[in-house]
Design a protein around this nucleic acid. Structure first.
Lengths: 206, 206
DNA sequence: ACCGCCGTTGACCAAATCGGTCAACACCCC
DNA sequence: GGGGTGTTGACCGATTTGGTCAACGGCGGT
C-alpha cells in the first residue's frame, strides 16, 4: 500500500477505515464494491486505489489494523490499572470496548465476518493473529483476578464466555449504532453482569 | 407467486428455501443474486423465476414462511408438554430450536438480517409479525413457569434474555453449520444454563 | 503573478454480473 | 406419438464491477 496514507490527518484515516469496515461488514468481500466504500466515506474511488493497490489489499490492511488496535488497546489498558475484582475489571474492560466501538463502529462486525466468512481471503497468518489475541486476552484476564471471591463450583471461564457471548449477541442485533444506542446496550449488559455477581460471589464479598 | 411451488415434494421446497435463506443471510438483499441462489440449490435460475415472479417476492415469501414456521413450531410444542420448571422447559425449547436449525440452517440468520438490514424491503406488516412472535413467546413462556423456584431478587426475564443473547452470539459465530457443530453448541449452551440453574434456584429445588 | 507540487477528482474502460425471459428440452402417462 | 409438466440454460439489455488516468484546485514558495 501507499505509505502516504499514514500522512493523512488521523480523522481522515479513520473516516476511510470506518467506512470500509462498515461496508465490508454488510456484505461478502466479493460483493462489497469499492464504489460503495468511497461513497460512504464521501471520497472518490480514485483516492481509494491511490492509497491501496486493490480491494484485497485494503481488506487485509483493515483486518490487520483492527487486530493491532485491539491488542494495543487491551494491553495498554491492562497495564495501567490494577483492579483485581472480576466484575469490576470486566466492567472496566467493557467500557474500554465501548470506547473502541464508538471510535470504530464497524470493527467488531467486520472482524467477525472476515474471520468466519466462507471463501475468506484472510491469510493463515492473519487468522492466527486473531486466534492468539482472543485466547490470550481471556487467559490473561483470568490470571489477574481474585477468583476466590466466587462461590465454590463456579467456573469463572464459563462466566466470562457467557457474558462475551451475550455481548456478541447484542452486537449482532444492531447494525451501525449511535452513541446513545451503545450506552443503552452497555446498561443492559451491566444488568446481567450485576445479576451474575450477586449470585455467583460469596456473600461476604457483596 | 406460483402456487404450484407447494405441489413440489417437500424436500425440494426445503432445498430451495434453505438455499435462498443461506444466500440472503450472507449478503444484502440488493447484493444477493438469483444466480447464486439457484447455483446453491443446484437448480436453474429459470426455475426460481417460474415459481416466484421476482427476487422481491421470493424474499418476502421466505420471511413470511420463516415466521410462520417459528410460530407453529413453538405453539404446537408448547401445547403438548406441561413442563413448568424454568430450566427444563428452556432446555426442551432449545432442543426444539436446534431441530429447526437442523431443518432450516439459514433461517435465524436470514430473519435477523432481514429485520435489521438498512433499506430493508420488509413491509411494516411483516415486521410487526416478527415483533409479536418475539414478544409473545417470552411472555407466554414465563407465564407458564414455576418462577418461585428462583431465589429472591432474581429477574427471570433477565435470565431468559441473557441466555437468548448467548445463543444469538453463538449463532453469529457460526455460518452454516453441520449437525455435529450444532450439537457442540447445544452442549455449551447447556453448560451455561446449568450454571445459572445451580446458583439462581433456591437450594431446596436443586 | 506565476510556478510546481500533491491530494483529489470523476469520467472512462472492458469485463463481469445483474434480474428476468423464453424457446426448447426430458420425462412420463395415456 | 401426442400432450402435459417440470426444468433448463442460452440469451437479453441494463447496470455494476475493479481499476486507470488525465486533469483539476489550492497552497507554499519565489
Amino acid at each position: 500500500m501507499n505509505l502516504k496514507f499514514f500522512d493523512l490527518p488521523p480523522e481522515r484515516q479513520d473516516l476511510i477505515r470506518n467506512s470500509a469496515m462498515l461496508e465490508f461488514g454488510d456484505n461478502t468481500f466479493k460483493k462489497t464494491s469499492a464504489d460503495s466504500i468511497a461513497k460512504r466515506a464521501g471520497v472518490s474511488k480514485g483516492l481509494l486505489f491511490h492509497y491501496f493497490k486493490d480491494k484485497r489489499e485494503l481488506y487485509l490492511y483493515l483486518f490487520q489494523h483492527a487486530i493491532d488496535a485491539c491488542m494495543e488497546t487491551f494491553l495498554s489498558s491492562f497495564r495501567y490499572f490494577e483492579e483485581r475484582d472480576f466484575f469490576l475489571a470486566l466492567e472496566k474492560g467493557q467500557e474500554i470496548k465501548m470506547g473502541m466501538v464508538r471510535r470504530m463502529p464497524g470493527m467488531f462486525r467486520f472482524v467477525m465476518r472476515a474471520y468466519y466468512e466462507r471463501d475468506s481471503i484472510l491469510t493463515p497468518k492473519l487468522r492466527k493473529k486473531l486466534d492468539d489475541v482472543l485466547a490470550q486476552s481471556t487467559d490473561e484476564f483470568l490470571s489477574r483476578m481474585d477468583l476466590h471471591k466466587f462461590k465454590e463450583g463456579v467456573d469463572p471461564k464459563a462466566v466470562v464466555r457467557l457474558l462475551m457471548l451475550a455481548a456478541e449477541g447484542m452486537l449482532a442485533e444492531t447494525g451501525a449504532c449511535t452513541a446513545q444506542e451503545i450506552d443503552t446496550l452497555f446498561g443492559e449488559y451491566q444488568k446481567y453482569a450485576n445479576m451474575l455477581r450477586q449470585f455467583l460471589y460469596k456473600e461476604e464479598y457483596l
